[in-house]
Design a binder for these strands. Structure first.
Length: 133
DNA sequence: TCAATGACACTAA
DNA sequence: CTTAGTGCCATTG
């Protein structure tokens, strides 16, 4: 699979994330068939066009933590704002609480997490047996 | 080619 | 709850 295909696959999955829900880089990587490429999922999102209406903000780390794109960047701040706009509660990252805070907060995956075994943008794997929560 | 990097994940303490 | 360490692998200099 080429980088372009990988990116395209990531975009397809991200597009399936329902409003008010979030998922993790690792899970997306799993859905596209490359569970070890969690880091590259983030790369794909970074490489996408600003014009794209892709809900990249619904993708966070497996811990529910919004990735801090580094001090001086407003990416995390925007992401937190978008998530709150979707009705998602974001804890931490309160501006003004700590100096140099770029807005990195956290989302409760137990409430807003979206982790399907597969997505319906194409074919699915006949996986029926899974652990009960 | 080698070395360093990264919008990560997982386990242990 | 936190910090530290290890694994991961395409991309980049």
């Amino acid at each position: 699979m080429d980088a372009a295909e990988f990116h395209a696959a990531v975009y397809r999955v991200v597009r399936q994330i329902p409003p008010g829900k979030v998922t993790s880089y690792g899970h997306i990587a799993k859905l596209v068939g490359m569970p070890r490429h969690s880091r590259h999922v983030g790369q794909a999102l970074k490489y996408l066009d600003p014009q794209s209406n892709l809900p990249w903000y619904r993708v966070i780390s497996s811990s529910g933590q919004i990735s801090s794109r580094g001090p001086g960047t407003s990416g995390a701040r925007r992401q937190r704002d978008e998530l709150e706009a979707e009705g998602i509660e974001v804890t931490g990252g309160e501006v003004g609480l700590e100096g140099g805070n770029d807005g990195g907060g956290r989302v409760n995956l137990r409430t807003y997490g979206w982790f399907p075994d597969s997505v319906d943008f194409g074919e699915v794997q006949g996986d029926e047996d899974l652990e009960a929560d």
